[in-house]
Design a protein around this nucleic acid. Sequence first.
DNA 1: TTTTGTTGTTTGTTATAACAAACATGGTCG
DNA 2: CGACCATGTTTGTTATAACAAACAACAAAA
Lengths: 233, 233
Amino acid sequence: MTSLKRIEREPLWDLAHAQLRDALLAGRFAPGTVLTLRSLAETFGTSITPVRDAVTRLVAQGVLQQGPRNAAIVPHLTRNELNDLTVVRCALEGRAAREAAKKPQAASLERLQALLAKMQSLIAARSLESYLEHHRKFHFEIYAMSGVPILVETIENMWLRCGPVLSFVIPEYVVLLKGWDHHTAALKAIIAGDGEAAEREIVADITEAAQYLSGLADAGGQLRRPMPEAAAS
Amino acid sequence: MTSLKRIEREPLWDLAHAQLRDALLAGRFAPGTVLTLRSLAETFGTSITPVRDAVTRLVAQGVLQQGPRNAAIVPHLTRNELNDLTVVRCALEGRAAREAAKKPQAASLERLQALLAKMQSLIAARSLESYLEHHRKFHFEIYAMSGVPILVETIENMWLRCGPVLSFVIPEYVVLLKGWDHHTAALKAIIAGDGEAAEREIVADITEAAQYLSGLADAGGQLRRPMPEAAAS
DNA sequence: TTTTGTTGTTTGTTATAACAAACATGGTCG
DNA sequence: CGACCATGTTTGTTATAACAAACAACAAAA
């Protein structure tokens, strides 16, 4: 007989939370959308109780804003808020990269090399969605190497707050602006044990991406998804 | 007739959340305590639904840990976790102090001066509880001056995670170790617009407090409240 | 004495119903 | 035509009950 696996039933609110989280990170909800408990419950096929738990959790994490009447809305990100997030991200992720360079681990470095190669091939293939996925893994592989779980957790929170606009980057940005890749340089610095350089490269990477996104803001400061081709009506 | 005030009914889960939050910050829950929904509901005089919301929110913020069977427990803080928190706090609060020094505001500076005076009188009076309250206000007055709400919010989260051990400091520590007060120096640096110095002083303040708390750890690395007088059995 | 099975209790999870506030709708009166 | 009010609908909030998994206590068997 095959070895039996552990039986575990995850709670419904956990599944709902994970689905909402991923949808936010993938940018599947337009900023400003109000998420009503009953409609979400219907799409999930559950009662409103588990979705209420999931939404409460997301609001507590700052991923969803609570609008009037405590309704959960997908946050509009303004240019100012993006700048604020960039300040925090630079402080946290720069520090994580510096710590990672102090204690490099062979297994992680190998994974980073592999991810880097994969990312470059995905850039060539203009496969943006898959690129973003691997890009995320690359960054967090570094942060995990810092060995500071609370730091990683907090950084994850910041990424979730950027979630709705993370998918606003277009393939051309990835190809064009990154003439000299900060990812490659950061990894090289970590291998060399140079914490200062690693921090500098990560900060530069974050800052440049933020500057690109900042350029997408309209007159009111709201960040908007760029039109893929010709302008709409 | 006097001017009537706006009527607003805050949700029960909000009140429960605030009460639990304050109790955690004041150290009124011993680390390791399991908070059961029904017992909390009984003490609050409500059903378990609002309590569940409040606890869910606290767990999502990382203030409460979720133990086996998703029970909410007041986290034990180990020396390692305290060190991790210190790393994050230095990165965030140091940055906030630096930003604050870049844009000092007269009103805030006045409040800081007043808080500093009050703190010194409270030290002389050995009034620890009140001192901690003003100490908290002093720090967050600085961080608010940075003008980066997300930064303040994240710092607040870190303080909440330290909550259960924040009250472990004893009056003697406040009096003894702070021969030259980092708070005074930090405020002076901010007034002078010297961001580097402000960051340095805040980081030193955090680090020294963490070192003191780290000394309270037992052989297992668990932080414990020091006995006020003679040692217990 | 140790182990195993049973039973009762505790506790988080989920569904459901009742409630109140806010919003939208439409009709009436000026 | 426009302002105002009544009404129905939507939606978050709260209480309650039923459920299942985990734990504790105790009894029975090896």
